[in-house]
Design a protein around this nucleic acid. Sequence first.
RNA 1: GCCCUUGUGGCGGAACGGCAGACGCUUCGGACUUAAAAUCCGAUGACCGAAAGGUCGUGCGGGUUCGAUUCCCGCCAAGGGCACCA
Length: 971
Amino acid sequence: MSYNFTAIEKKWQRYWLDNRSFRALSPTEAGDRAKAYILDMFPYPSGAGLHVGHPEGYTATDIVSRYLRMKGVNVLHPMGWDAFGLPAEQYAIKTNTHPRQTTEANIANFRRQIQMLGLSYDWDREVDTTDPNYYRWTQWIFLQLFNSYFDPIENRARSIKHLVQELLNENLVVAPDGEIRLNPTQEGLERIAGEMRIERLWRELDADEQRQLIDNQRLAYMDEIAVNWCEALGTVLSNEEVIDGKSEVGGYPVQRRPMRQWMLRITAYAQRLLDDLETLQWPESLKEMQRNWIGRSQGARIDFDLPDHMDSDGEPLGLTVFTTRPDTLYGATYLVLAPEHPLVDLIVSQEQRQSVREYAAKVAGRSERDRQADSKEKTGVFTGAYALNPINEEKIPVWIADYVLMGYGTGAIMAVAAHDQRDYEFAKRFDLPIRTVVRPAQGGAAAADKAFVEEGIACNSPIIDGLPSAEASAKIIATLERESTGRGMIHYKLRDWLFSRQRYWGEPFPILLDEEGNATALDESELPLTLPQMSDFKPTGTPQPPLSKAGEWLQVTRDGKNYIRETNTMPQWAGSCWYYLRYLDPKNTERLVDPDLERYWMPVDLYVGGVEHAVLHLLYARFWHKVLFDLGQVSTPEPFARLVNQGLILGEMEYHLFEDEAGGPVSAALVGDVAEEASQSGRRLMGTLKSTGAKVIGKRIDEALTQRGGGGFCLKSDERIMLDARSFKMSKSRGNVVNPDEIVRDYGADTFRLYEMYMGPLEAQKPWNTRDIVGMSRFCASVWRNLTGERDPDDGQASGGDQPATASNRITDEPLAEASRRQLHRAIKKVGEDIENLRFNTAIAELIKLNNQMTGMESVPRELAEPFVLLAAPFTPHLAEELWQRLGHDQSLSRATWPQYDSELLAEPMMEIPVQVNGKLRDKLTLDAQTTEADILVAALDSAKVRTWVEGKTIVKKLYVPGKLVNVVVR
RNA sequence: GCCCUUGUGGCGGAACGGCAGACGCUUCGGACUUAAAAUCCGAUGACCGAAAGGUCGUGCGGGUUCGAUUCCCGCCAAGGGCACCA
């Protein structure tokens, strides 16, 4: 019987599970072995089942894990389920089943699919984010966030108790703007300036104020802010979940509306999240995406007085802008506020009130998306108010315009029309003054029809004239700071993380709310707070979350006071923010993770997953990790030392024929230029139009192509043909989704694994091509034949997984030929190095070459067969285990020793030296590897072929690159 | 508009200063077979040539170098990210 992959794969999958073959060792068991934590991004178990993209990353980490185990490393390689989330809940609503049920069914299906791929996970450590024993600790981390604040002096999170203590001790005081500062009297400064009280002490606050003050410092806090409300999903979404004004999930419209929501103070960590990227071995492009998302801008806040306006207490009003170009302050010819800016109502003049209101109403009625769509045409309205430029007391008009966003900076800008393109367009539109205050450093004039936005030399700016922009900015900031009309600051685009959702299927907050809506945390001992069983978990159609219908569950009386539970739930990201920690100690009932285990295993040595999490999961997880680090719960500042993004697997190539613009002849197959070029020469376009999957549509392709003998096609000489061959993302609607179940059924898991790894570099985006799978299938069958001698179904031998393994008649104890031995040792080196560099495609190519050698052999020496099976084991583990057993081993090879190569055998005794003349290859010499340079050059010039190219010319230079080539330069 | 990534045979890709196209697919030819499948052997970048051999060739245009797919400068195209971010 021939190679029966189904039986073999079942047999070994059973064996691995029964024997817990991939159990990670405890630090004690491991002794002085090295450790490696190899992690996959755990999947969201959707109803659709595994996608071919999942096995790509999972196979990659599996190969690395299996390889490292064979190298004697203690490997932790776990898997789990990120099972809270919107799709499960939406599906549950649609089918009227409880999300618990669908989630369990989906997890079972995912587990089956993952196990059928032969992935070497330590199943003892499986986690499920929806398990109360898991989300108990998600809630626990939330409590840590709630009970902590960010100490800007130490630049880290600390217990809120510490803050209260410092306030009680009067080391800290409360500034009028609500900020907490060092007590100036501690530095010998006065806390009282004139008759006006500047700062207040803790004991001078009443109980409500104290509570407010503390609540405003927490890392998890409630705030009434404009949030992204998605009507269709019935929930709010984080900035990261909104793309182009639509929900990332489902693409539903999202509106801004003010709601009281839980926020996490990720902005406090902006600088550390930015700085620590430098320490990570991550793809540069992904780091760049995080940098852009954090969006650091260095600049200044500048205060403009509004001389004609007083607040209700009779204090003069002021207006603060943020700018990255303080050096252009003299060029500010007007100010612009966001239409939603709270100051607008206070300063608008009687005459302008009507038009300002109308404009603001119009803007409010439009989504962010619409606002961006017609950003080409600037709109805005004058408020009737004027402000004073602090640098020169110039009186400038204040406008409102929707190109200024309330959500960035202070929601107000100083407009410098000469040096900002948007301001320039606005000024042109409304005929506002444009004043040049920077000239190009290299001389030459700036373009007249647009803003000069680069740095240069300040001009028309009395105190900074002649200074380069950077110095000019510094001087302006110094001046403003001296006069208390501004200060240098760094602004981040990153916003605090909106952390609550109006959903049922998420972690409940361990929070009680009193009648005023103040939050009180549950005690750690009260966790987990489990989701109430509800038959009606549908959205309410209002911002009221489904849990508001939970009846008794909601009511809590404590110390004689009535509370109601928080009815929002946490977003899907909560569970995935820390799952990598739980794998280390998944059954611990006392702690999140045992500190010794945490220190042993962290950080994650290799993390593989899709790039779609660049600014969501990967930013959130880093943030939580840093908080846990500050609070002493984890030992490393970063969770994922090395990260690799697997490239997207696109759908199968699609070929399209279409009319060209002239409505003329048909367009046909292959990418534009190639086809066009081909059409001009009339030569063979592609030999295999049929076999590539191109569909012959009607007669048209036949009109353009003539069939050659043997099934190839040729372009008719004068046709103009364009071929559109492209592949698209796999999607249900396109009908190009490949189902892993079918591939494994038809070809086996080993072949499937090989195929995905052989498609190309792990990081590259590449199209699926079912046609190519057969290559890997042939390889597996060929290895089987080469090592078992079982040729085809007719030779009468029983085999397959359930049968007792029979010894092979192809294996011999004869010594291996010298040349083959050298090839083997080169392969051992290459395969090991390629795995370490995640270059699986070239490693597989090496295995194929080695197997091709065996195909040509009469019988295969054990000296070659055994190392070959070990080298193949990480890639085709089932096949390798079966062959290993048939080679007479009674132990699984999962912990067998990886072969070692002998460096002596890497060098060939003879070498082939190409000889170039003027950089062109003219001959090749086969020489003893010991030949000296002088002899090689003599031999090279002695070559007849070389001589014909050198004759009659002067040799200018003779070059020898040791072991590589000779180049003779002649003139 | 800005940032990042990628452009190599009929296809996926390899080489990443030193023999361009490893390896797989496809196609063609041969062996085996009553036949087919499977398997095995050989060929497969283009052009010229009967052959030996030669010329061209890694998106395009320059540059550095004895030598460039590889490094530098300038374009073009595709994919991804950000986007009125002050």
